[in-house]
Simulated assay, not measured.
Amino acid sequence: MLVVGPAWVGDMVMAQAVLRLLAARRPGVAIDVIAPPWSLPLVRRMPEVREAIALEVGHGEFGLGARWRLARRLRRRGYGQALLLPRSFKAALVPWLAGIPRRTGHLGEARRGLVNDVRPDPGRRRAPWVRRMAVLALEPGEAVPEVLPQPRLAVDEANRARLMTALGLAGEGPVLGLCPGAEYGPSKRWPARRYGALAARMAARGWRVWVFGSARERPLGEEVVAASGGAARNLCGRTRLEDVVDLMSACERVVTNDSGLMHVAAATGTALTVIYGASSPDYTPPLTPRARIVRRALACAPCFRRVCPLGHTACLEGIEVEEVERTCTP
C-alpha cells in the first residue's frame, strides 16, 4: 500500500490515525508513505509505516520531473493500491505515473481518471479532516468508525536524555511547553506577551518552561522569553522535529495554538491546553482525550482567515492569562 501524505506537519500527524485504521483493518499490509522532507522525521516515528519515501519538491512547487523520477522508481515495487490524502492534482500524479492499479481518493481538483476509486467527501465545514480521510482506509460504502485510533508517535528516550544534557535542560519541577507559533498566520497566534506572562506565573509556581518552534520562530520565542522576565528557555530553532517529539514527551503540559506542533504534542500523549482563534476544534481538534480547549464564542469566529479581516483579533486578545493558567492545574 502506498500512501501519499499531506504537506502540512499537523495534517501528517493526524494522518497517522488513518494509517492505524488501515493497519487494523488489513493485518500484515505493508504501508509506505510519500512525504515532503520536512515531515519525514514524523513518518519515521509511526510504527505502522514500513518506509518513509521523500518527495523532493518544495511546498507549493509542481515539480513534474521529480514526481516522474519517483514514480519510475516506485513502479517496480508492485503496489496494489494507493491512498491519496491530499486533494490536489499534483498529489495524484505519482501513483498514476507509477501504474498503481487502484488509486483511492477524493476527486479534488481535476483528478478524474487519476483517481479511479473515488470516495465521497462531505467537505471541510461538515466533518473533521481526519474523519474525511478515514473513509479512504475503508472499502466503498463502509461507515467510518465512531471512534478512530489516536496518533501516537514513538519516543526515543535515549535521544531525549542526550538533549536534556546537551541543551542544559535538566532540573527540578514539572515542565511546561509553550508553542506560540502557527505557520498559518497571526489569526491563530495568541499574543507572545500573554505566553510570556503565563511563563512567568508558572515559573513562580516552580515549573520549568520551554518554548518550542522552528528556526523562523526564534524571534517569536525571544519575545516570549523577554515578556517572561527570563523565566522561559527558548528552544526555537535549536531542535530538529524529531527532537521536539522527544522533549514534548517530558512535559507535564503543553500550551499551544492550533498548529502543527499542537498535533505533535497530542501524539506524544502529553496533556494539552489548546488556544483557538480563527480556526475551530470542530474541524482540526487535538486527537487526544487529554486536551483542554480555550476559545471565545464570537459572532465572527471561526473565520478561517490568516489575518483578522476586522483588524482586532478579539478571538485571541479576549483570552486572558489567568484563564489559560487555570487549565494547567489538575
Score class of each variant (00 low, 15 high):
residue 312 H to N: 14
residue 91 A to V: 10
residue 309 P to N: 07
residue 107 L to V: 15
residue 156 D to W: 09
residue 195 Y to T: 05
residue 58 G to S: 13
residue 72 R to H: 07
residue 77 R to T: 08
residue 39 S to W: 07
residue 96 W to D: 05
residue 102 R to S: 11
residue 201 R to Y: 00
residue 264 V to E: 00
residue 141 G to E: 00
residue 300 C to H: 06
residue 191 P to K: 04
residue 33 V to G: 05
residue 162 R to L: 14
residue 284 T to V: 07
residue 97 L to A: 13
residue 3 V to K: 02
residue 52 A to W: 01
residue 228 S to D: 10
residue 187 S to L: 03
residue 206 G to T: 03
residue 124 R to N: 11
residue 52 A to I: 06
residue 125 R to M: 12
residue 168 G to K: 05
residue 90 K to S: 13
residue 34 I to L: 13
residue 189 R to E: 03
residue 120 P to C: 14
residue 109 E to H: 15
residue 203 A to H: 07
residue 245 V to Y: 00
residue 104 T to G: 09
residue 68 W to A: 11
residue 159 N to L: 10
residue 281 P to V: 06
residue 113 G to R: 13
residue 172 E to S: 13
residue 271 A to L: 10
residue 42 L to D: 02
residue 152 R to L: 06
residue 323 E to H: 07
residue 108 G to A: 04
residue 25 R to V: 14
residue 296 R to V: 08
residue 110 A to G: 12
residue 24 A to C: 15
residue 265 A to F: 01
residue 31 I to A: 11
residue 120 P to M: 09
residue 203 A to Y: 04
residue 287 L to W: 00
residue 83 L to G: 02
residue 327 T to H: 13
residue 329 T to Y: 14
residue 118 V to E: 15
residue 2 L to R: 06
residue 151 P to V: 00
residue 242 E to H: 11
residue 247 L to F: 07
residue 36 P to F: 08
residue 279 S to K: 02
residue 147 V to Q: 14
residue 277 G to K: 02
residue 140 P to S: 02
residue 68 W to N: 04
residue 308 C to N: 07
residue 311 G to M: 12
residue 299 A to M: 08
residue 171 G to C: 05
residue 205 R to Y: 04
residue 226 A to I: 13
residue 179 C to A: 12
residue 132 R to I: 06
residue 163 L to M: 14
residue 315 C to Y: 05
residue 63 G to Q: 09
residue 286 P to W: 00
residue 205 R to N: 05
residue 165 T to I: 15
residue 326 R to V: 11
residue 262 M to V: 10
residue 152 R to F: 03
residue 113 G to M: 13
residue 45 R to I: 09
residue 198 L to W: 05
residue 59 H to I: 12
residue 41 P to S: 11
residue 77 R to D: 07
residue 62 F to E: 13
residue 320 E to C: 00
residue 268 T to M: 01
residue 78 G to P: 11
residue 237 G to F: 10
residue 64 L to R: 07
residue 94 V to C: 02
residue 5 G to E: 03
residue 272 L to C: 03
residue 287 L to G: 01
residue 132 R to V: 04
residue 288 T to Q: 08
residue 156 D to I: 09
residue 224 V to G: 12
residue 177 G to C: 01
residue 247 L to T: 05
residue 80 G to T: 09
residue 211 V to L: 10
residue 261 L to Y: 02
residue 259 S to F: 01
residue 99 G to A: 10
residue 181 G to P: 01
residue 70 L to G: 01
residue 130 V to F: 08
residue 235 L to Q: 07
residue 173 G to A: 05
residue 2 L to H: 04
residue 51 E to F: 10
residue 305 R to E: 14
residue 318 G to K: 08
residue 243 D to L: 10
residue 213 G to W: 02
residue 240 R to N: 10
residue 99 G to Y: 07
residue 68 W to C: 06
residue 217 E to N: 11
residue 171 G to W: 04
residue 174 P to N: 03
residue 205 R to C: 05
residue 211 V to I: 14
residue 111 R to S: 04
residue 256 T to W: 01
residue 162 R to M: 13
residue 80 G to Q: 09
